[in-house]
C-alpha cells in the first residue's frame, strides 16, 4: 500500500471559529493506481491534498488521524524528514498552475531550483536532468530559457508536470490539473500524464470537480462533501451504480454530450463551521429522514469494496428512482 489515510481530521482556525475542512476521511492508494478525489468548492479536497504534503497554511492543523506512506507515519514527522519526502516521494501539481511559476525567472531555472532544494545535486547534473524532463513532457529543450509569459497555458502546465516528475516520486497529487486549460490542451496534458505513468509506474491522485476526468483516468474514486467522505470505491462500481444521493445527484447534473436532461441539486453546500451530529448533505437530499438530522451516518461497506456514508444506502429501489426523476429533486423539503 503506497498511501494509507485513516480518519484524517484537518481543521482551520478562523478567529474563534473552527472550520472542519477535512473531517474523518479515510482512503488508500496502491502502487501504480490512480485515485480521483471528487468534490465541489469548499468540500475539503484541496485541504486533504495539502495535508498529505504538510503544505497547510499557518491557521490550519491536522488534529487527528494518520497518513502512512509506505508504512511511515507522516502526520507527526518533523519538517526535515517531510522535506525529503516532499518532491522526492510525493509531489504536487498545484491548482491554478498558471500562476505557480515565478514570472521573473526562466522556467528551466525554476525546475533546476526545485530539484536542488529537495536533493543534493550538482547544477550541471540538475540541468541535464531538466533537459531530459522537458523532452519527456514534450517541450523543446530551448524552452528552458523562456520566461513563463512566453509559454502558452498548456506549455506552462507541462513545465509543472516536469517539475513534479523531477525526482521520480511514487505519488503525484494533481490538484485541478485541467481547469483554465482549453479542451484539446486538457486532453493532451492528461494523455501526457498517463503516458508518463507507464514509464515511471507512479500513482496519481486527481483532485478535481470534473467527474469525467476521473471516470477516464482513475481506478478508484472518493467523493467528498462538506469535509466528509460520502462514497468510496472503484470507478466502475461508483459510476455504474452510485449509492449516495449526492453521487447520484452529481451524475444527474453533470452535462455531457449525450445528456438530454439535467437535474440540479437544489441549494448550496453548508458552512464548514458547524459541528452538528447530523448528515451534512441532509438539507439538499431528497431522501432525508429524521434520522439524518439526528445521527451522522458512518462509512460502511455496502457492497464489496464499495463504501458509502448514508443511512439509506441499502434501499436500492428508492435510489434507482432518484436517478432520473426531476420531481424528486425539485420537491426537497429543505427549501
Amino acid at each position: 500500500m503506497l498511501l494509507e489515510i485513516t480518519g484524517l481530521r484537518t481543521y482551520y482556525r478562523i478567529g474563534r471559529d473552527c472550520c472542519r475542512a477535512v473531517d474523518n476521511v479515510s482512503m488508500n492508494i496502491s502502487k501504480a493506481e490512480n485515485l480521483g478525489l471528487i468534490g465541489e468548492s469548499g468540500c475539503g479536497k484541496t485541504t486533504l491534498a495539502k495535508s498529505i504534503l504538510r503544505l497547510l497554511p499557518r491557521n490550519a492543523e491536522i488534529v487527528g488521524g494518520s497518513i502512512r506512506f509506505l508504512g511511515t507515519e507522516l502526520v507527526d514527522m518533523d519538517e526535515e524528514d517531510i522535506r525529503r519526502i516532499r518532491w522526492g516521494q510525493i509531489s504536487l501539481i498545484p491548482q491554478s498552475s498558471m500562476n505557480a511559476l515565478n514570472p521573473v525567472h526562466r522556467v528551466g531555472d525554476q525546475v533546476v531550483e526545485a530539484i536542488k532544494i529537495h536533493q543534493r545535486m550538482a547544477k550541471n547534473e540538475a540541468k541535464r536532468r531538466v533537459e531530459d524532463l522537458f523532452g519527456l513532457v514534450g517541450l523543446e529543450k530551448n524552452r528552458m530559457r523562456d520566461y513563463p509569459h512566453q509559454l502558452s497555458g498548456g506549455m506552462k502546465q507541462r513545465v509543472l508536470i516536469a517539475m513534479a516528475l523531477a525526482l521520480e516520486p511514487s505519488l503525484i497529487i494533481a490538484d485541478e490539473p485541467t481547469t483554465a486549460l482549453d479542451v484539446i490542451t486538457q486532453d493532451q496534458i492528461l494523455e501526457e500524464l498517463t503516458r508518463l505513468q507507464l514509464k515511471f509506474h507512479n500513482s496519481i491522485m486527481y483532485v478535481t470537480h470534473d467527474i469525467s476526468v476521473v471516470a477516464e483516468r482513475c481506478h478508484k474514486v472518493a467523493i467528498m462533501y462538506a469535509g466528509k467522505l460520502m462514497e468510496y470505491g472503484s470507478v466502475s462500481d461508483v459510476f455504474t451504480k452510485p449509492l449516495h444521493p449526492y453521487a447520484i445527484g452529481l451524475r444527474n447534473s453533470f452535462p455531457s454530450l449525450r445528456s438530454k436532461s439535467l437535474i440540479s441539486i437544489p441549494g448550496s453546500p453548508p458552512s464548514l463551521l458547524s459541528n452538528e451530529k447530523a448528515c451534512r448533505f441532509r438539507q439538499r437530499c431528497p431522501l432525508s429522514l429524521d434520522i439524518c438530522s439526528e445521527r451522522e451516518p458512518t462509512m460502511i461497506e455496502a457492497r464489496s469494496k464499495h463504501f458509502v456514508a448514508c443511512h439509506r444506502c441499502n434501499e436500492t429501489e428508492i435510489l434507482t428512482s432518484l436517478e432520473h426523476d426531476r420531481e424528486v429533486w425539485q420537491t426537497i423539503k429543505g427549501f
Binding site: S152, G154, M155, D182, V183, I184, T185, Q186, D187, Q188, L190, E191, D210, I211, S212, V213, A215, E216, V235, S236, F239, T240, R251, F254, S256, L257
Partner: peptide, 26 residues
C-alpha cells in the same frame, strides 16, 4: 478534434481520440 477531446463520464465507454499537434498559436 474538439469533440473527441471531451472526456466521458462513463468508465465503460471508450472514446476515439483525434490527435491534434501543438498548441493554439497566439
Amino acid at each position: 478534434a474538439l469533440i473527441s477531446a471531451i472526456p466521458i463520464a462513463d468508465p465503460n465507454v471508450k472514446r476515439e481520440r483525434v490527435s491534434v499537434k501543438g498548441d493554439i498559436p497566439d
